[in-house]
């Protein structure tokens, strides 16, 4: 699927990067905890989040993420969006909750990025 498919399924509004909607996507992660995203995500993926501070964009920049999905209709400030655009990130917003957005995207074939869990470290 492509980012354009995500926009359609989530009934989302494209905030930045409208020229890159044909980018293919295979995986996603959903988190408001940037510490976890930085620690566990190591592929160019999609981040679904309810956090709209500048560190979401900086985290995305460090990890070369492809697309940011803001849920519950959240929209970051213009300067944050501009810095996302500078990096070539696609930014979209949907009125859906994170739970519903993830469910619909999973149903469409998007899968979670493989991440180690706390259980792995304990050998469970």
């Amino acid at each position: 699927m492509t980012i354009a498919d995500m926009v359609r399924v989530l009934n989302a509004k494209v905030l930045r990067g409208g020229d890159k909607l044909d980018t293919p996507v295979f995986t996603a992660c959903c988190s408001d905890l940037m510490s976890d995203v930085l620690a566990f995500v190591d592929e160019k993926t999609v981040l679904i989040t309810g956090l709209t501070n500048p560190h979401v964009i900086r985290t995305s920049e460090m990890l070369d993420l492809k697309c940011l999905v803001f849920v519950r209709g959240k929209i970051p400030t213009e300067d944050i969006l501009d810095s996302a655009e500078e990096q070539g990130l696609v930014v979209i917003t949907t009125k859906m909750t994170a739970f519903s957005a993830c469910g619909l995207l999973y149903d469409m074939g998007l899968r979670g990025v493989p991440v180690p869990t706390a259980w792995d470290a304990e050998g469970n």
């Binding site: 940037m34 976890d36 620690a39």
Partner: peptide
């Protein structure tokens, strides 16, 4: 991992989960 002394401000920004140094 998981040990953190970060303050509330850092946590509100999505950090302070005790992953920094191990990461």
């Amino acid at each position: 991992e998981g040990y953190s002394t970060a303050n509330e401000e850092a946590r509100s920004l999505g950090f302070g989960a005790g992953m920094g140094l191990p990461n």
